[in-house]
């Protein structure tokens, strides 16, 4: 029972926040947004494997 409680409490953290005057964002949210933008750009520029085989 206490194990359960401790396990649950252990998951709660303040998180790390970045901010530029008036604007703040939590590190996890920032990472997810940056990853999405990188994937978007990669999807546009990377060649698709096997693209030459069939035309």
């Amino acid at each position: 029972m206490t194990g359960w409680l401790v396990a649950s409490v252990g998951m709660v953290g303040d998180g790390t926040y970045f901010g530029w005057d008036g604007f703040t964002i939590q590190s996890g949210n920032l990472i997810v947004i940056v990853v999405m933008i990188i994937l978007f750009i990669l999807a546009l520029v990377l060649p698709f494997p096997g693209g030459k085989r069939r035309k």
């Binding site: 990377l46 096997g50 069939r54």
Partner: peptide, 11 residues
């Protein structure tokens, strides 16, 4: 179609 050979269609 050939244009589907792109990462843009994988997500």
């Amino acid at each position: 179609p050939s244009y589907v050979m792109s990462w843009a269609y994988v997500f």
